[in-house]
Design a protein around this nucleic acid. Structure first.
Lengths: 150, 150
DNA sequence: CAATCGGGGTTCCCTAAAGGAACTTCGACT
DNA sequence: AGTCGAAGTTCCTTTAGGGAACCCCGATTG
C-alpha cells in the first residue's frame, strides 16, 4: 500500500499518528490499560488477526509505548504500558468522551468513569495547564514553535 | 483488505475509531481547523492522493463531522467543521500535546498554543468535569454503563 | 464564440497491508 | 515419548492506499 510516512512532518499530530495512527493500536492500548496483558487474551478480545497483532505489538514496543515483561520462566511475555504509553491513555479518554457524547445513542455510554479524587461518575474536560480555564479548539491561537519547519 | 468494522463494538473508543480511525482523517480535521477548506488546498498540503481525499471527505461529511458549504455560485464547496467535528479538535490538541512531549526531540514543538483566556503559551491538561481535579488514566475506575453489551 | 483555465473530483492500474487459517516452536506437564 | 498451551510465523486471498491521467463544467479571455 506504500503508505505515507507521517513521522517526518513538522506536526506533532502527524508524528503521533505514526505511533498509533491506525485503528488497532488504540484498542490494544485500551485493553492493556484495563489489564489485558497477554497475546492470546488480546487476540481473542479484539478479534484481530494474530499476524497483525504481532506487528502492532512490535511497533508499540519499538516506539516505547509498551514494554514486554517476562513471566513464568518460559519465553512468555506480558505487555505493560510505559510512562510514555500511560500518557497516551489521555487520548483514549478523550476519544471515549467524544464517542459517549456523539455515538452512544439511546442506550447511553457503554462504560462509565468514576474519578478517584471525587468519587463521582464523570468525564474528562480540557483545561489550560497554565490558568486552568477551559481550553478547546476555538480558545487558542497557533504560533510557529522552535521546531517549526524551516 | 476486508477491514474490521469497529462501529458495532460496545466501546466508545472503537466507535470513534470508526469515524476518524485511520491516519488521514485527523490530519484533514487539523487542516480544516486551521482554515484550509478546499479540496486542492488540502490535497497539496497533505500530499494525500486525490482518490483517498475524496473518500475521506465523503466519510467525514457522512458522519456529520464536516459540512460542505457551497461558494462562488459554481459547483464549488468548502469543508467546515460541524459542532460534532469541532469537538473532535479536543482530540487533536491532546495528540499534539503528547507528540510535543514525546516526539518533538531537540528542536522542540513545531507549533505553540496561546490560550485566549490567559494569553500564555500553554498546553491542554485533562481535568475531571465534575470536580476540576486532574483526571488521567490511573485516576479512574471503569464501571459498566447503561449501554454496556448484554 | 471557440479556446483556455481552474476547482473538484473520477478512473485505472499497481502495490502493499489486513484477514484468516494452518503450521511451528519450545518449555512444562503426564 | 506424547501432549498441552502460549506466542508467534507462514502463506494465501482480498482490499485499500498511492499515483498519474483523465473528465466535467462554469467562468474568463481573445
Amino acid at each position: 500500500m506504500q503508505r505515507t510516512q507521517f513521522g517526518q512532518m513538522a506536526c506533532s499530530i502527524a508524528r503521533t499518528l505514526d505511533v498509533i495512527g491506525e485503528p488497532w493500536s488504540p484498542l490494544i492500548l485500551r485493553d492493556v490499560w484495563v489489564g489485558m496483558r497477554r497475546f492470546d487474551q488480546l487476540q481473542a478480545d479484539l478479534g484481530i488477526s494474530r499476524k497483525v497483532l504481532t506487528e502492532r505489538l512490535n511497533h508499540l514496543v519499538d516506539q516505547g509505548v509498551l514494554a514486554r515483561h517476562p513471566y513464568d520462566n518460559r519465553p512468555r511475555y506480558e505487555y505493560h504500558l510505559t510512562t510514555k504509553g500511560a500518557e497516551l491513555v489521555d487520548l483514549l479518554m478523550v476519544m471515549a468522551g467524544w464517542g459517549d457524547r456523539w455515538l452512544a445513542g439511546e442506550a447511553g455510554p457503554p462504560v462509565l468513569y468514576r474519578h478517584h479524587a471525587c468519587g463521582e461518575i464523570s468525564n474528562v474536560d480540557l483545561r489550560c495547564a497554565h490558568c486552568g480555564e477551559p481550553m478547546h479548539g476555538g480558545d487558542v491561537d497557533l504560533l510557529p514553535g522552535p521546531g517549526a519547519s524551516p
